[in-house]
Amino acid sequence: MIRYLLPLAIFLGLVVLLVVGLRHDPSVIPSPLIDKPAPAFTLPTLHAPDKTIGLQDLRGGVSVLNVWASWCVECRHEHPQLLELAKDQGIRLIGLNYKDDRAEALAWLKSNGDPYSTSAFDEAGRAGMDYGVYGVPETFIIDRDGVIRYKHIGPIDATTLTEEIRPLLERLRGS
């Protein structure tokens, strides 16, 4: 009996391994920043170069920090979801405009709609580096104590928004 069952078991094990491997996106790297304090930053805002925004401004509330750029193609695909999210009650959606040109970024927001309460202008990408950004768009959720609770790499689709982001925001704001 074992003579037939053993190869079958090995085969099934292999199938499980391969299925797991196929469903796993190798371009998504788990961030070491989850459940760690968000890195501090102070940057000029996109709209007003003389004004700054920093981590300290996010204190006391749950924030969504979305890394975007006008040169980023995938950002266009996630934009409807961000506009949708911005409509939620009491949401604070901050943009991190990553390695962009100010005029182009402003024009991009004008033509696509601006879901952000503020966008920080990270021209050199230094803040992005501190957040471990390697592929725009990326999205972080920072709780009211300034701890990163979630990171999404790549565009947010409708499923991610309704099944991951909104429930987590609700949970964090409720607690």
Partner: peptide, 8 residues
């Protein structure tokens, strides 16, 4: 680098 991007 590891602090930002992980052991990756």
């Amino acid at each position: 680098l590891v602090d930002r991007y992980g052991d990756f």
